Amino acid sequence: MTQTIDAVMLVAGSAEGSAFVLSEPLSFWGGLDSATGAIIDQWHPQKAQIMSGKILVMKAGRGSSSGSSVLAEAIRRGTGPAGIVLMTRDAIVTVGAMVAAELYAAHCPVVLVSETDWPRITRSPELRLTAKEGGATLELLGPC
């Protein structure tokens, strides 16, 4: 059963894929290997898991402004997430996805959702993002 949630577009695009829900925030700088898409932060509970091609679901990013360049590089290489769902605005994540779109024509939509919808989103195994000027939607695919 598909459920649709209204979201706020931070970076335009569309993507569909398996949900990859982070249990803790991640800094892309020192936390993501842009060559493989693996989490390399030694203290992150999801260390060694791969985000490539998945819809990354995280409350917020963490850390260094240099993380934008790491995210942009991962998106360029095709090792980054297919899309990103945030509960809190994050300029570093947003800029990384914007740079990838502008410089490399590699798109990774980023949307912002409400805290109210968060529990349903994190239980969905598959997600579809559609983000464009004027609005965004997040479809929860499968049982939630």
Rank of each mutant, 00 (worst) to 15 (best):
M1L: 15
I5T: 04
V11N: 08
A12N: 12
A12Y: 05
G13V: 00
E16V: 11
E16P: 03
F20E: 09
V21N: 09
L26E: 03
A35E: 14
G37W: 09
I40C: 12
D41W: 08
Q42D: 15
P45S: 11
A48F: 15
K54A: 04
I55N: 00
L56P: 03
L56I: 05
V57L: 05
A60E: 13
G61P: 06
S65R: 14
S69I: 13
A72L: 05
R77K: 14
G78D: 02
I84A: 09
V85P: 02
V85E: 04
A91T: 14
T94F: 03
M98S: 13
M98V: 07
V99I: 14
A101L: 12
A101G: 14
L103M: 11
L103H: 10
Y104V: 03
A106Y: 00
A106T: 04
H107C: 05
C108W: 01
C108L: 07
V113N: 05
S114G: 12
E115T: 11
D117T: 10
D117P: 03
W118S: 08
I121Q: 07
I121Y: 05
T122N: 02
L127W: 07
R128T: 12
T130L: 11
T130Q: 12
K132L: 13
A136R: 06
E139N: 05
G142V: 09
P143W: 09
P143L: 12
